[in-house]
Design a protein around this nucleic acid. Structure first.
Lengths: 154, 154
DNA sequence: ATTTTTGTTCAATCGCGATTAAACAAATCA
DNA sequence: TGATTTGTTTAATCGCGATTGAACAAAAAT
């Protein structure tokens, strides 16, 4: 039963997608839906195919899909004259992960700056350490900008 | 009441540390402890000072601090002859965030590779998209390696 | 030896997002 | 028009990690 074996492998992979997206703040089901749309050989799946393959309720699917569509991760295709909705993976900006990384750097930088501001002793060991981190972040941000361009044009 | 105002600002900041570390997978209390140790003007705080300032149970503090120490984020200082434990922020590797980023890239790369392997049609739209992402990740990893060196020696 | 301080352990609980179920709405079909 | 398919809404529940509380242990003080 070759098909069955393949399907099992797909299911495992779908769960890995789920774990990964879970680790970056997605609902488990959201991650598994993205996984299914990524793994499936058919690249457009109906609402019904999604709920039955992932064994999730229509309610969950409805809510999560709406969010994924709103976020632009998934696209809806409504075939003319039919009533079903089909969903496919949206092929997004490849720099999304990098953007996320930069946002995180910015947030850390802001936090450390405010922390130093509030310190009675700006020369304290921790304050100096935070200055170092900010400095490092700044260097990275400069480098990242040029790197981004280099990769983009390559 | 200047002191009181300052303390409020510190508390807000501590919560922000909590949110940030929460977003990267830490227990809320763990984040707030790191926040307190970062924000506090005194850089070594006793177990008791931590629980009373953060208003958390001794049980929570005990468990979370043990983990933070095991992970190397916090250091324990036991003053000779005294029975109290003091805790301070461990000034770690500044590249930790970057390491985390690379680990995430690797994990995504592995997932996409396996996904393509399982695809019936390796020329499908999604498969091609995944190839592109892998390609981009590889370029980044190369660049990151040299960047890391440049920042380190600068 | 007794008391006090300091911290640990772990069973119980709490809080909260994730998920479901079932009633409901909207569109199509017969 | 009435029946059917397709998807939405929302109140209720479930699951699970985070947190507490209280008993317990170890070390220092008296």
């Amino acid at each position: 039963m070759q098909d069955n074996e393949n399907r099992q492998k797909q299911d495992q992979l779908i769960d890995k997608f789920g774990s990964y997206f879970g680790s970056i703040g997605f609902q488990p089901i959201a991650g598994r839906i993205i996984g299914l749309l990524s793994v499936s050989d058919c690249e457009e799946l109906s609402f019904d195919e999604i709920t039955s393959r992932l064994q999730i309720s229509k309610g969950s699917a409805s809510v999560v899909l709406r969010r994924l569509v709103a976020e632009g991760r998934v696209a809806v295709v409504t075939v003319e004259g039919g009533r079903r909705h089909y969903y496919r993976l949206n092929q997004q900006n490849l720099f999304e992960v990098l953007d996320e990384f930069e946002r995180m750097c910015d947030s850390v930088r802001g936090l450390l700056n405010t922390t130093i501001d509030l310190k009675a002793d700006k020369q304290s060991s921790n304050a100096k350490y935070f200055y170092q981190i900010i400095n490092t972040i700044d260097k990275y941000k400069t480098k990242l900008a040029s790197m981004r361009q280099a990769v983009q044009t390559a």
